[in-house]
Simulated assay, not measured.
Amino acid sequence: MTIQHLKTNNLILFEAISGSRAFGLATENSDTDIRGVYYLPKEEFYGLNYIPQISNETNDITYYEMGRFVELLQKNNPNILEMLASPEDSILQKHPLMDMLKAEDFLSKLCKDTFAGYAVSQIKKAKGLNKKILNPIEKERKSVLDFCVILEGAGSVSLKKWLSENGKMQEKCGLVNIGNTKGMYALFYDKSDVLGYKGIIQQQEANQVSLSSIPKGEHSAAYLFCNLDAYSTYCKDYKDYWKWVSERNEDRYNVNQEHGQNYDSKNMMHTIRLLQSCEHIFKTGSMQIRVTNRDELLDIKSGNQSYESLLQKAEDLVKSIEHYHAVSVLPDTPDLAKTMEILVEIRERLYS
């Protein structure tokens, strides 16, 4: 099933412009996101072809089946609540039956977890991005060898430096465990190239050192320490960093580089907006989609505020949300029975 199929067969119940344009935060470069609700024909709903969601290739146009839509409303999903509460000038079409669903019937104290909880996760994401921007990882991947050192007196020297300065090759080295230690090895060297030592690693991608059989009478050339925990952490960071590089939005990344604040300013703008929206819910018991502080939020998007000041703003909003949540008269959860009755009635009318 496609979006065109929904439109051709008049299955769309609700359609609205969402995102920045609905919030009143659009600029000349803003995309136009569309969100909507559809219903499945009776035969498909009762059959084995239930389709909960349909999107285009770029996911900037998404429609939710009525049942899935109500399910997400019951969970106080921020995007879905905001879609239901869309400003009149953002609504493109609306079936009269959609008037039976009102955002106020779904608002509950769950919003603290869904709105503020999601915002806090975005702050953590921003911190991770901040770390990636400030600490780029070289494309050339390090090996276990880079996490090995040779003990010298009361100190140590990197393995690669020790090999270079002593004219040795890692392939001619042999390691044996030192009992009752972690990561410590005695290192032997095969000058004759006949003892068949396995080397410190046998291939560049090895995730641990190799151990060799050492003939009796051989004397160790040095003691080696390998920090495999640090290597494991590096491998994870390397994978995460280069996955981020391959998937990042280059236009947004370049904007972030230009303003020099080392955070995703668009992400932080929406994070602050989401926290302010959550605060409004618990203050008033209602939703406000169109922002009243456009200039402040666009100033954040432009990167004109420091990363630290935004984190402080977010922390202050979280504290305010905690306060208003504690005194709010909103129910702990939506009235599931009532909203389910509404869903059933809508379907009965659609299928009658």
Rank of each mutant, 00 (worst) to 15 (best):
L297S: 08
K127P: 03
A337Q: 04
N180Q: 06
N304Q: 11
K125E: 03
T292P: 01
K131W: 12
K142L: 09
K112P: 00
Q276T: 01
H219P: 01
G36P: 07
A206W: 07
K239A: 09
E43Q: 15
T27R: 12
E71R: 15
E205M: 14
Q257I: 02
L159N: 11
G19E: 00
N59H: 07
M269V: 01
I300N: 09
Q202L: 05
S352I: 00
I272V: 10
K109V: 00
P41S: 13
S213F: 05
C235S: 13
C111Y: 10
S143L: 09
T233M: 14
L350G: 11
I61Q: 15
D240I: 04
T27S: 15
L48H: 11
L275G: 02
H219N: 08
G128N: 10
Y64G: 03
V176C: 08
Y241P: 08
E345T: 04
P334C: 10
S210H: 07
P87D: 04
V255D: 04
N254A: 15
P78S: 07
N177P: 02
Q122K: 08
F45A: 14
R21Q: 06
F188N: 03
E258H: 14
A26S: 12
P52I: 02
D33H: 08
F147R: 15
Q74R: 14
K75L: 08
Y241S: 03
F106C: 07
L84N: 09
L343D: 01
